[in-house]
């Protein structure tokens, strides 16, 4: 029996779904302290592993502030480094 089948279906799907849905709620209620506290509790229940549910960053908040919505967003120039910083541009390809 693999480790995966040992986990109940509810555990395997339910926990990440609850975290996902609560995060979506926080997108439009970033000031809801009760909801953020619940999210923090879910994070603690996963042993403080920020990526316990791979697609959901669980630690995108600090001191009661929800940071998941903070910019800049990846499509904005401010979020991107200059390629010059990676490639010196001297000779070569």
């Amino acid at each position: 029996m693999t480790e995966r089948t040992a986990v109940s279906c509810c555990e395997r799907y339910g926990r990440p779904f609850a975290a996902w849905d609560l995060r979506l709620y926080l997108d439009t209620h970033p000031d809801d302290c009760q909801a953020l506290a619940m999210f923090a509790q879910m994070y603690a229940e996963q042993g403080g592993d920020c990526y316990a549910f791979r697609g959901i960053k669980m630690c995108d908040w600090e001191d009661g502030i929800w940071h998941h919505l903070d910019g800049p967003w990846p499509w904005e120039p401010e979020a991107n480094c200059k390629v010059d910083a990676l490639y010196s541009g001297k000779g070569g390809r």
């Binding site: 996902w20 995060r23 979506l24 997108d27 439009t28 970033p30 697609g55 998941h68 919505l69 903070d70 910019g71 967003w73 499509w75």
Partner: peptide
């Protein structure tokens, strides 16, 4: 639709819902 949204909450929710 995310690219032209001027507000961070809309950028975030469209990203999350689009991903779902």
């Amino acid at each position: 639709q995310r690219y032209s949204m001027p507000f961070d909450d809309a950028k975030g929710a469209l990203t999350d819902i689009g991903t779902e």
